[in-house]
Computed example of a mutant assay.
Amino acid sequence: MQLFIDESGGLEGKDRLFVVSGVCGDADAFAKRVTKHRRRIGRGRRPLTELKGADLARIAEYEVLSDLPIETRFATVFVRLSDPRHAWAAKELGEPELYARMIEQVRRMVSLGGVDIQGLTIDHGRFKRSVQRRLQDRLERASNRPIPIAFRRSETSPGVQLADLSANLAFRRLNGTPDFGAAPLEGLFRVLDKRYGGGATALDLSEVAPDWLTGEKENGSP
């Protein structure tokens, strides 16, 4: 199975919330589902070149994600600057290091059910190539078993497109975006959580947080 990674939000400006989502499953099956829904959603208007959460209605995102093979696994990790530990880490460690830690935690979460991750594909867009190389080295050193790691543009990777939809939904849910205030959509999100083992977890910084922050509670709830 392949693990695909994308992110939403950030640690600068108004967001103050950074979300990394992973979608793990069969790459060929993902490609077929993305092609199917890209054609369906684009019918009657300009054809879609890719599925992107920022461009789709929330219900359309749900329809795509709920149509994935049952063995698919989701995992989401977030950093919220209102959490003192996360604020400290954003300042002291920087975004690339936090991003690597978030990807590692997503990978561990997906692997808990005995999933054999055979490759890792990360969205190309966030960091320039020199930072990507450092991230790749960092992730390879942290891995118990070396696996191929690649950075791909989302338009060329159906799996990254699915991770984008997952990250976009998780960001909106965690950020309290108004269109998640409706009970039906919140209920649909719970269906995704139950079906694919999703949910969102705060980044664990217990190994690196200083003693004076030890008593601070991470905000682990959406």
Rank of each mutant, 00 (worst) to 15 (best):
F180V: 13
D204T: 00
A31I: 08
L205T: 02
A183R: 14
G159N: 08
S206Q: 11
G22A: 09
I59K: 11
L213N: 15
F127I: 15
I103W: 02
Q2F: 04
L65W: 02
A142F: 04
R152K: 12
R39K: 12
P210N: 14
T201E: 09
L169W: 05
L112P: 06
D26V: 00
S166D: 05
G176N: 10
V160M: 08
L139E: 04
P47F: 02
D83Y: 12
V79Q: 01
E50A: 11
I149T: 06
I147P: 01
R38C: 07
R85F: 00
I147S: 11
G94E: 06
D83R: 15
P148T: 09
A54H: 06
E218C: 13
G94Q: 14
E63S: 10
A170I: 01
D123W: 01
R46Q: 07
L139N: 11
G159E: 04
A89L: 03
V115S: 01
A31D: 12
P47A: 05
V160A: 07
L135T: 14
V110N: 04
R108V: 01
G220H: 13
P84R: 15
A57D: 10
K128I: 10
F189C: 14
E7Y: 09
P146R: 13
T72W: 00
A182R: 11
G94A: 10
V131D: 13
T35E: 08
R108K: 15
E50T: 05
H37V: 06
K36V: 03
L165D: 04
V77C: 02
V160C: 09
R172L: 05
L68G: 07
G44D: 11
F4V: 03
G181F: 07
E186D: 12
E12G: 04
Q105W: 02
K128M: 12
V106N: 08
M109H: 10
S221L: 09
G9A: 05
L48E: 07
E97T: 13
G198L: 01
K91E: 15
L192P: 01
K36H: 09
A100H: 03
K128E: 15
N168Q: 04
N175S: 11
G94H: 10
R134V: 14
L51M: 07
E12R: 14
G42T: 07
V64H: 05
S8G: 09
A57G: 07
R133A: 09
I5W: 03
G199Q: 06
S143F: 03
R145N: 07
F18P: 00
G25S: 06
P184I: 11
